[in-house]
Simulated scan of single mutants.
Amino acid sequence: MSEQHSSDQPRTVVVTGANRGIGYAIAQRFAAAGEKVAGIHRSGEVPPGVLGVRADITDTDSVDSAFTTIEAELGPVQVLVANAGMNRDMLLLRMSEDDFADVVDVNLTGTFRCVKRVSKGMIRQRGGRIVLISSVVGLYGSPGQINYSSAKAGLVGMARSITRELGARGITANVVAPGFIDTAMTAELPEQTQAKYLEAIPAARFGAVEDVATAVEFLAAPQSGYISGAVLPVDGGLGMGH
């Protein structure tokens, strides 16, 4: 079985949602490591040294066009980090079908669109790394997040099915499940909610975006070819056993 490029050869890495928070830190980490990095984003700016391509992952043509641009600029994609996501939190009885469908379309179907588009090239190259960014709530559950947790749980099934389908071609698919990470999104939560989470985290602190980037970099490494279909929690122990 052929292995991916040797570690001293820059690879083309695509990170979706690279304009803020976790996605920004992941793109920054790969760029600092000397990889050729592209960020797919709908708004904002990507880190310096990263090729920014605007696209809407709920639109198949937009996704196709973005990857075509990236391939023309940087070459065939060897690493995909599917990080783009959204949430629209509310209790079950207040959640409309649109609230559910829209979140699933971005977090789950949007990831499918990117994975499907990038897998063709990876099959041709007989190698690739796919890392899907899920969440502790995908396995642990969370009140007010039935749409988000359903979509994030779906990513686990997706990675494991990709592994069974494409594993013999040198392609791995893994999941990183962050817990409570200190970002602009989590900073908006009421102090009472933050205190409650903190109490439940064995590490007694919130995670940093760099903690997630470290896990992604490990799973995407050329040397990590025998790890596939795994879920790597980055949650300070919050979701243990889930």
Rank of each mutant, 00 (worst) to 15 (best):
R113E: 11
A187D: 10
I26G: 05
D59Y: 06
M240V: 14
T12D: 01
G229T: 06
V103I: 13
G229R: 07
A204N: 03
T60M: 07
P202W: 01
S65K: 02
D99A: 15
T68P: 04
V131I: 15
Q223C: 00
A66F: 10
A173S: 14
D105H: 09
R169Y: 15
S62Y: 04
F30M: 07
A220M: 11
K120H: 11
L91Q: 14
L132Y: 02
Q223M: 00
I171N: 04
D98I: 10
T111D: 07
H242S: 04
I57K: 01
S228C: 11
Q194G: 05
T109A: 01
E188I: 06
I201A: 08
Q9F: 06
E199P: 03
F112Q: 10
P76R: 00
H41V: 15
N174C: 00
G236A: 02
G154E: 03
K152H: 06
A187M: 08
V131P: 04
T12I: 06
N87R: 08
M158T: 01
A18Y: 10
V103Y: 03
A230K: 08
S150A: 09
A204V: 05
A187T: 10
G39L: 11
F100W: 13
H242F: 10
F206R: 01
E3R: 11
R54M: 14
R205P: 03
G144R: 01
P47Y: 08
S65I: 09
R88L: 11
G237C: 06
D8H: 14
V115Y: 13
I22N: 04
V46F: 00
T69P: 04
A184R: 14
K36P: 02
E165T: 13
I123Y: 12
S119V: 14
A208P: 09
V212G: 03
Q145F: 05
T16S: 07
G207Y: 01
E71C: 02
C114H: 05
E45Q: 10
A18P: 07
L139C: 00
D235N: 04
F112M: 13
A27I: 06
Q28R: 15
S119F: 13
I123T: 14
G207A: 06
I70K: 02
G236W: 02
K152G: 02
E188L: 15
V14K: 12
G241N: 03
A187S: 12
E35N: 14
Y197W: 14
G75T: 05
K116R: 15
P202C: 05
V77F: 00
A215F: 10
H5K: 14
L139F: 00
G75Y: 04
D59I: 11
H41F: 15
N174R: 05
V37Y: 04
V79T: 09
T111K: 02
D61M: 12
D211K: 12
S161E: 10
L198V: 05
T69I: 07
V37D: 04
R117D: 09
V63I: 04
V118D: 00
R54T: 15
I146W: 09
G170F: 08
A66S: 08
G207H: 01
G85C: 07
A82R: 09
D61L: 13
G49P: 05
P202Q: 07
A31M: 11
L108K: 01
V106A: 15
V137S: 03
T183C: 03
G167K: 14
L155F: 02
S43Y: 14
K152Y: 03
A159W: 02
F180Q: 14
